[in-house]
């Protein structure tokens, strides 16, 4: 069978017919910004950071199947400006106080913003009142930082088989909930060894007693831009 190909920013690459554009790009070493996507989980398509142009139309790279002859635009000024705005939306929607955050330096949202050259939050901040749940002995929830990517929801449901997390509410009131009548994480089945406890791209789900272990300068994204780090992750390293 002939190898199928598409182009990203004019560069031809071949792909497997079962791949999405994101997967085809990652396999070929092309970084497309993303937050809700993770190669271990079912594509989701909610953050919209991976918006690309396919044959002139906007599409999410993480959910759109790769197809023969697609002309994909990825690293363009237009798309990166648009991605910057979407990232800024995520920043103003929650409460992201990087200077005091345990995950600062390891945070995908923050590193993605760096990668896009984002300097400010542009929009007015919402400063919502969100919940902190420290009830569990090993795991901490700080919903100020939740970006509703549903990675924990997918991990807990599809990998841990526990469905500890879910998204309830609607619109700007959407929020993470846990599977307990009390609403407290300690009353759920989650354990520190669960995948869901470790998959959060931001600092909304934290493992207790591990904060600030690495000094500034040695943290994940301090000298390692998001492009390279996420490509490694997507390629399964």
């Amino acid at each position: 069978m002939d190898q199928k190909t598409l182009t990203i920013d004019g560069v031809e690459l071949s792909f497997d017919p079962r791949q999405t554009i994101m997967e085809a790009a990652a396999a070929a070493g092309v970084y497309i910004p993303h937050l809700c996507h993770h190669p271990d989980f079912k594509p989701h398509g909610s953050c919209k950071l991976c918006t690309v142009k396919v044959n002139g139309r906007f599409a999410s790279a993480c959910t759109l199947p790769a197809a023969e002859g697609q002309e994909v635009l990825n690293k363009t000024l237009e798309l990166n400006q648009l991605r910057t705005r979407i990232t800024q939306m995520l920043f103003v929607e929650g409460n992201h106080f990087c200077p005091g955050c345990e995950i600062s330096g390891h945070c995908k949202l923050q590193a993605t913003a760096y990668g896009l050259g984002m300097l400010d939050s542009h929009f007015p901040h919402f400063y919502p009142a969100r919940r902190v749940d420290a009830s569990h002995p090993d795991i901490m929830l700080d919903l100020d930082r939740c970006i509703l990517c549903e990675l924990c929801v997918r991990a807990s449901r599809d990998m841990d088989g526990k469905s500890v997390f879910g998204i309830a509410g609607r619109g700007m009131e959407s929020h993470l909930v846990v599977a307990a009548e009390s609403g407290a994480l300690v009353d759920t089945l989650i354990e520190v060894s669960d995948r869901a406890a470790h998959v959060c791209p931001v600092g909304a789900i934290l493992i207790k007693h591990t904060a600030y272990e690495k000094p500034i300068g040695q943290r994940r994204y301090d000298h390692h831009p998001i492009q390279a780090a996420l490509l490694q992750e997507d390629q399964g390293d």
């Binding site: 919209k48 939306m89 995520l90 509410g169 009131e173």
Partner: peptide, 21 residues
């Protein structure tokens, strides 16, 4: 639209509220 946004994707969830402001 801001009131009826389902909240799934970022641009609609946040963007419609920002447009409202």
């Amino acid at each position: 639209f801001a009131h009826e946004s389902c909240g799934f994707c970022t641009p609609c969830r946040v963007g419609t509220s920002l447009l409202g402001q």
